[in-house]
Design a protein around this nucleic acid. Structure first.
Lengths: 186, 186
DNA sequence: GTCAGAAATGTTAGCTCATAACATTTCGGG
DNA sequence: CCCGAAATGTTATGAGCTAACATTTCTGAC
């Protein structure tokens, strides 16, 4: 992998400082000025790297992987089942390495109302992508949209529960959530 | 019904002006200063009535009704089915009068990303209430939470679709959405 | 190594959302 | 009518975010 450019380094420094400060003092109590100062940079530079204070936390490592996996499922399954099973398959692809870093971020999101709200905007892209795949498989647009949104809501709930309980495994948690929607998979 | 107090009148005037201006110029392009001015009042007064710009739109007439209806379902049903059927029952209670007013608001929300995000915060209270009822019926907390969030996501998707399509009926739309989650209700 | 173009960052200024403290007007019942 | 209380206005302040322009810092060709 190419050596990280200066841009990538400051971005990552900002992201790290932000997460640490947010965990220490809370999201709202931490101003972007503090973050920038801690990262040895200006407030302006922060906004050059992240469109908003929230974006410093919401760089989701999961979103890209998911949509593809859903499309890989046979298109003769019902929309909901297809989305659910696609999700299940996508889980196997995740490395254990990123999981603990992700946990900190998800936990922060789970505990911060405005971050939970902002995360939805993030999810909409993923949801739309899933819905597209479902529709391509023959489902009507409405059912596809509903199925995609419902599944993502379940997954999100599972993510939050996972982040808060160190004994929980991501796979377990999401598996359990998807079982609620699609019990008959055994 | 008692004559509206002064507080109620200005609140409603603010709410009306806000909705109209938002529809005309878009949510972000409309400042609360404009709204206040249009309502013959100060910016400060706006924030005395609504905690945020978003709250002027997100006074949800549905939320209160829902949770109760879910609790009324027999507690031997599965969490998801119980939430779904409770929702279905709740629909019958809504008057046709508020529907067209609600449509304007929901449509605005459906078209405005930051409003969709803010609406989630609104939903969380409802979701928690539903989950409580499900848990009281014997479901474990995790499944109850997942079921509640999934159902609300489906309902939200249905609301947005309904708001955008004048031919759609609220009952139809939500009914169709819930069918996706719980096809075996016939 | 150096020098020029490009990329990253800094500076300044300004708008909007939101909150707090205190003053003023307006309402509504006795 | 009049007084307490509720509603609103005023002023000040801070944080998030954007725009325009200046400055520094990289990077690659020579």
């Amino acid at each position: 992998m190419a050596p990280p450019s200066k841009r990538e380094r400051t971005r990552s420094r900002l992201s790290d400082c932000a997460l640490t400060l947010f965990e220490a003092h809370g999201f709202e109590a931490t101003s972007v000025g503090m973050i920038a100062r801690e990262a040895g940079v200006t407030e302006m530079t922060f906004f050059r790297h992240f469109g908003s204070k929230e974006q410093a936390v919401l760089t989701d490592p999961f979103d890209p992987v998911i949509a593809e996996a859903v499309g890989a499922r046979p298109s003769d399954e019902a929309p909901l089942a297809r989305a659910v099973r696609g999700l299940r398959a996508a889980l196997a692809e995740l490395s254990d390495e990123d999981l603990e870093t992700a946990r900190r971020r998800v936990r922060l999101v789970a505990r911060t109302p405005v971050l939970r709200a902002a995360a939805v905007t993030q999810n909409e892209a993923t949801s739309a992508a899933i819905a597209d795949r479902l529709a391509a498989g023959g489902a009507d647009a409405f059912s596809a949209g509903v199925a995609a949104q419902s599944v993502l809501a379940a997954v999100t709930a599972a993510l939050y529960a996972w982040a808060e309980d160190p004994r929980r495994t991501l796979t377990e948690s999401i598996g359990a959530a998807l079982d609620v929607l699609d019990p008959g998979h055994v």
